[in-house]
Amino acid sequence: MKKLASLLALVALLAGATPALAGDDRPIAYKKLPAAARQFITSYFGDTRVSYAKVDSEWWDTTYEVVFDDGRKVEFEKDGAWKEVSCKYSQVPDVIVPPRIREYVAASHPGQKMVKIERSRREYEVKLDNGLDLTFDRSYNLIGIDD
């Protein structure tokens, strides 16, 4: 019984300490971003001033977030590949949206702007300025619509 109580106490202690140790969200200098992330920013957001950059270090993953003065935001993977681009008050740059997704949006939702795009290993999610969320698989086939 003492062993069980000791084990439960240890599990409770570790469960309480793990969240405090896992997340480390801190500001970083622009020059400390991965080279691929800096190149992406220069290519597609070169005309906008960076407000701040931060790194989020988890036990199993590291991501970077860059916020611009005009409110646009880009999130990067640890290798510098873009993960999410959010443009509240403008449009996501067309050149970063896969052509088949651009074509679908232009044909099926004319006049709508893409204000956010997010990609994962399995899918792309695009948010339009009318609030509609479109989900595409890695072959760029529409697999979901959420309003």
Rank of each mutant, 00 (worst) to 15 (best):
S90Q: 06
G111T: 06
A29T: 06
Y44S: 09
I41G: 13
R138T: 12
D69V: 07
T42L: 13
G23V: 14
P93R: 12
V50Y: 00
R102K: 12
I143P: 08
F136T: 02
K54G: 01
V67S: 10
D61K: 14
R100Y: 02
V92S: 13
I101D: 11
G46V: 02
D147W: 10
I28S: 06
L128K: 11
L142Q: 09
V50F: 04
R122D: 10
I41M: 15
A20M: 14
K127V: 12
V74I: 11
L14R: 03
K31G: 03
K54Q: 08
K113E: 08
L10T: 09
D79R: 11
V74P: 02
K78V: 06
R122I: 01
V55Y: 00
D129K: 04
A36G: 07
I41Q: 11
K32N: 13
K127E: 13
Q91L: 13
G131C: 13
D137G: 03
K73L: 03
V92T: 05
L7F: 12
F40Q: 09
D69K: 12
K78G: 13
K83P: 01
P19I: 07
K73A: 10
I28V: 14
K113W: 02
F45N: 05
D61R: 09
G131N: 08
S51E: 10
L8I: 14
V95M: 15
D94H: 06
V74W: 00
H109W: 04
K116W: 03
K83H: 07
A107S: 14
T48H: 10
L33V: 02
D69A: 10
E103S: 14
A15G: 13
V55L: 03
Q112V: 05
L14K: 03
L4V: 11
R72P: 00
Y104M: 08
